[in-house]
Nucleic acid binder design. Structure first.
Lengths: 238, 238
DNA sequence: TAGTGGTCTAGACCACGCC
DNA sequence: GCGTGGTCTAGACCACTAG
């Protein structure tokens, strides 16, 4: 991310705090804000769009920009938008756990032969990346795996959501790649099982195996980092 | 959406088809593409970013832009990116059904008193919008409802995902608003029940009630439009 | 009609990848 | 070093909303 872009976010948050703006309050017009924050309007809008994607702002054409529910992050969180690494990783794993199993189940129901073939190719790439310890290839093929599951559902919205889930997750592979052989193999084996479940059209297994896999993942990570994984899985029955 | 932006998407898709580009193939550089498609680079990049968000493209800094898995949409779908209204609505409802129940369960576990108060206020706004038949207020407060659920989970990733889910859904309220009093009341009552479940910290009920609510919603809509709702709910047990 | 956000342009420099 | 995508600028016009 650019230097300016980050600065814009910080200054924007600082501005909201300084002005004691509350939910529903209106921000100054974009042209004015860009002068106040000392950036071009385009750059400002990049930042605004980012906050809009988090539900913090809402833009109304012809009217103005308003603070939204969710603006309270400014109070509780010091940095608000970029949080510490551990939190990002924890949030990501939890989001996976809550969302991917259902997508996998749906994929098992609707996948066609070509798509299953794709998924198998994806696993091959994944395994190559694991044995050769190639970070980028690993992150990419794993993202692909989830992307393919979403595509299998034939639901465009889900594709977009998985893409959002996949974004900004490069960090945690740094830790994973350092992990021991065992965890890698367990996790990889897990992916293979998921594909097999989908091949059999076994909806329930597909969902459960994905869950199991994410839990393995989490346990592997918690052995290296101090991420409390325990409280993530109280919702297992849902 | 702007005229140019739509044109860019169309021309981009046409370009990929004409050149017979397949997965993994590299697109021309941005500066070149912007000339080919006769738009500025900024505008082009808006379009590229949109396709990237759908997992169709992938940009590699210093290297190039590549077609990704998921590019097959060009084959199956005529328009590829913007599909017909019915499909958009169906996809949206299904995505809700697969994702929101788990988020509601998680919210029931973690919500604090202030947030529950917020949710109640939100319902009040929702009910006002329903009785007065204000389309925008209705869409907005319903989006808020889901947004608040995500915020309650204290998981930033989920907030982003719900925001993605909420986006681009203005259309289907057009239909809803024409619906009969009964459906409206049933749906509204459903929201109230969800809030009560969260208040009681009843994780299971929160999840189930949300599901029930989405099903009601779908049935209400299918009475007006010809949306096949039946096949959406084969995954109920997961 | 005035003011707002939305889109678009042409051009500049930066940071990374690859040779 | 060179080409690529990433960021940033300043300024223009369009489309919508509100008074």
């Amino acid at each position: 991310m650019g230097i300016k872009k980050k600065e814009v976010l910080e200054r924007l948050i600082q501005f909201v705090k300084d002005q004691q703006l509350k939910r529903g309050d209106k921000l100054p017009p974009e042209r004015e804000l860009s002068v106040l924050l000392n950036v071009s309007r385009t750059t400002l809008r990049e930042g605004l769009r980012m906050l809009e994607a988090r539900g913090i702002l809402i833009s109304r054409r012809g009217s103005g920009i308003y603070l939204n529910r969710g603006a309270d992050v400014f109070d509780s969180q010091p940095g608000a938008v970029p949080t510490d690494e551990d939190t990002v990783i924890k949030d990501h794993l939890e989001a996976r756990f809550l969302i991917i199993p259902n997508i996998a189940a749906c994929a098992a129901e609707r996948a066609d032969e070509n798509e299953i073939k794709e998924l198998q190719d994806c696993i091959v790439r994944l395994s190559r990346a694991i044995v050769s310890r190639e970070l980028n290839a690993l992150a990419e093929s794993e993202a692909d795996f989830f992307r393919l599951l979403a595509i299998m559902t034939k639901n465009h919205k889900l594709v977009g959501i998985v893409e959002q889930l996949n974004s900004g997750i490069e960090i945690f592979w740094d830790y994973f790649i350092k992990s021991d052989e065992f965890v890698n193999n367990v996790i990889f084996a897990g992916y293979v099982e998921v594909v097999n479940a989908i091949k059999r059209r076994d909806v329930t297994s597909a969902s459960e195996l994905v869950k199991r896999n994410i839990i393995n993942f989490c346990e592997g990570l918690s052995r290296i980092k101090n991420i409390p994984c325990r409280d993530l899985f109280g919702l297992k029955k849902n």
